[in-house]
């Protein structure tokens, strides 16, 4: 990264997330608890569909993940999910693998970032 390069977008847009939950720490904790259960389930389904190169199911899982991630202000991960969702029927295996790899990299370490936001909300 060069000194004049723009700062990379953070994993979690904290201000956006806190606005979504109306700065309610209890609600945020509840959403993170749901995320812990739901996210791995849908990620697993996505990996399985990608492994089978089943684009329809890839799109379905990516759609659900995008919705979940965008509600949590995780803009970059949501954009990576959108890229998977938008893969057309003509997309080849390489494009799929590359989009999946980008998505996986965007969601790595996401949970601690989200949990750190709880402290910034009202107790």
């Amino acid at each position: 990264m060069q000194p004049n390069d723009p700062l990379p977008e953070p994993m979690v847009n904290v201000a956006e997330l806190l606005a979504r939950v109306d700065n309610d720490a209890e609600l945020l904790r509840e959403l993170i608890a749901i995320f812990k259960v739901e996210f791995p389930r849908h990620l697993c389904a996505l990996r399985e569909a990608a492994g089978q190169e089943n684009l329809k199911n890839v799109q379905k899982s990516a759609h659900t993940l995008r919705g979940m991630l965008s509600n949590l202000g995780t803009t970059r991960a949501a954009a990576a999910a959108a890229r998977l969702e938008q893969l057309g029927d003509s997309s080849d295996g390489t494009a799929l693998k590359s989009a999946l790899a980008l998505f996986e990299s965007e969601v790595t370490g996401l949970l601690p970032e989200l949990e750190a936001c709880v402290a910034k909300a009202k107790p």
């Binding site: 749901i34 739901e38 659900t64």
Partner: peptide, 17 residues
């Protein structure tokens, strides 16, 4: 909404209103 997270967020937002 079939997304539990989205559903809960909506539910709480609307209850608060």
């Amino acid at each position: 909404d079939d997304d539990a997270l989205s559903l809960r967020l909506l539910e709480r937002t609307l209850e608060r209103d």
